[in-house]
C-alpha cells in the first residue's frame, strides 16, 4: 500500500465522518509494509533506500549546526568578539568568507559561534511555548470540568495579550538578558500553540477511537497518552520545527527594539538587528545570519515533516 519512496499515498484515513482509528498509531513496526517490494532486503538497506534527498540535505544541515553549537572552535577557530576597527565593513573575501561587521569582527566566525545561543533560544523558547500550550490544551480539552474551565479562561486571557507586550513588560521588569528574552518569546508564542494544539485535541477527541476508549473505560490520562497525544503529534511536530525559526526571529525583533541579547554577543537575531542599520552599505551583515536562521528552520521543518510522515506510514 505504500510504495517504497513514500509518495503521497497513505492509508486511507480521515474520511470526514469516522476516521478508522488506530491505524495511525506508532505501535511499533507495522508488519504490513514488510510484504511490500522491499520485503526481501535487510532492514538497513530498506532504511537507506527510503532516505530521500531532502531528508539527507536537511540532516546534514542540522548536523552542521549542531556541530557548530557543540564545538564552534572546530569550524571557526577565531574569537567571535575579536574587534579590529581597521577591518570594518569588509565585503566577503577569502580571508572573511562572510565579510566583516561594523567593528571588523569576522561574520563567519560570529555565525558559527552564534549557533549555540541562537539554537538555544529557538529550542528553549519553543519548548516553553509548547509545554505551556500542551498543559493548557490538555487541561482544557481533557481534564475535569473545573480544570477545563480554569485552563480555558487562562488561555483566553493569555491570548488577549499581544505577545510583544508580555515580552516588553518582562524585559522592563528584569532588564534585558538572553534568558529573559527566551522566556519572553516562549511566553508570547505559547498562546498560538495552545490554540492549535487545543483545536487538534478537540478534533482527535471526537474521533471514533477515542470514543471507543471511553467506552472501554480507559481513564483520561490513558486516553490522553495512548490516543490523543500521539494523534495530535503531527501538529505539535510542525509547530516545534516551525517554532525554531520563528522564536529566533521574535528574539531578533526584541533586539530591533533594543531589548534583546545584549551586545556584542554573537547571536543570529541580534546580528540581524544590528546589521539592518547597514543594510545598504553592507548587506552581508544581515544575509549571513538571516540565511542561518532560515536554513535551520527549513531543515528542521522538512526533516520534521518527513519523520512525521514516516511514523504515520509505518
Amino acid at each position: 500500500m505504500s510504495d517504497s519512496h513514500g509518495q503521497r499515498s497513505r492509508p486511507p484515513e480521515e474520511a470526514p465522518e469516522a476516521p478508522p482509528a488506530d491505524m495511525r498509531l506508532p505501535t511499533g513496526p507495522n508488519r504490513a509494509t514488510e510484504t511490500g517490494r522491499d520485503g526481501a532486503l535487510p532492514a538497513w538497506r530498506r532504511m537507506l533506500r527510503r532516505i530521500r534527498l531532502v531528508e539527507l540535505a536537511s540532516a546534514v544541515i542540522l548536523l552542521l549546526f549542531v556541530a557548530a553549537a557543540v564545538a564552534p572552535g572546530l569550524l571557526a577557530p577565531g574569537s567571535p568578539l575579536a574587534v579590529n576597527p581597521v577591518d570594518a565593513f569588509q565585503p566577503p573575501s577569502w580571508a572573511h568568507p562572510f565579510g566583516t561587521d561594523e567593528s571588523g569582527r569576522d561574520v563567519y566566525t560570529r555565525v558559527v559561534h552564534g549557533a549555540r545561543p541562537s539554537l538555544l533560544i529557538g529550542v528553549a523558547a519553543t519548548a516553553i511555548g509548547l509545554v505551556l500550550a500542551l498543559v493548557l490544551g490538555a487541561a482544557a480539552g481533557l481534564g475535569p470540568r473545573w480544570l477545563d474551565f480554569t485552563a480555558g479562561r487562562v488561555t483566553e486571557v493569555f491570548f488577549a495579550f499581544p505577545g510583544i507586550l508580555l515580552a516588553l513588560l518582562l524585559i522592563a521588569l528584569t532588564g534585558p538578558s538572553p534568558v529573559v528574552a527566551t522566556i519572553a518569546v516562549g511566553l508570547s508564542v505559547a498562546p498560538g500553540y495552545a490554540r492549535i494544539i487545543g483545536g487538534e485535541f478537540r478534533r482527535v477527541r471526537q474521533a471514533g477511537y477515542v470514543e471507543a476508549a471511553v467506552l472501554l473505560g480507559h481513564g483520561w490520562w490513558r486516553r490522553f497518552t495512548g490516543h490523543i497525544l500521539p494523534n495530535a503529534l503531527g501538529s505539535v511536530f510542525v509547530l516545534a520545527t516551525l517554532g525554531l525559526g520563528q522564536t529566533i526571529v521574535w528574539a531578533s525583533a526584541l533586539s530591533f527594539l533594543g531589548l534583546g541579547t545584549p551586545p556584542p554577543a554573537a547571536e543570529w537575531g541580534a546580528m540581524l538587528a544590528a546589521g539592518r542599520t547597514y543594510l545598504e552599505v553592507a548587506p552581508w551583515l544581515t544575509i549571513a545570519p538571516g540565511t542561518a536562521i532560515v536554513l535551520a528552520a527549513t531543515a528542521a521543518t522538512l526533516l520534521g515533516r518527513s519523520l512525521e510522515q514516516r511514523v504515520r506510514e509505518s
Partner: peptide, 11 residues
C-alpha cells in the same frame, strides 16, 4: 554606531 563604539571599547 555609538553602541558599536562602546562594544569596541569593551573589547
Amino acid at each position: 554606531a555609538e553602541i558599536s563604539l562602546f562594544e569596541q571599547i569593551q573589547a
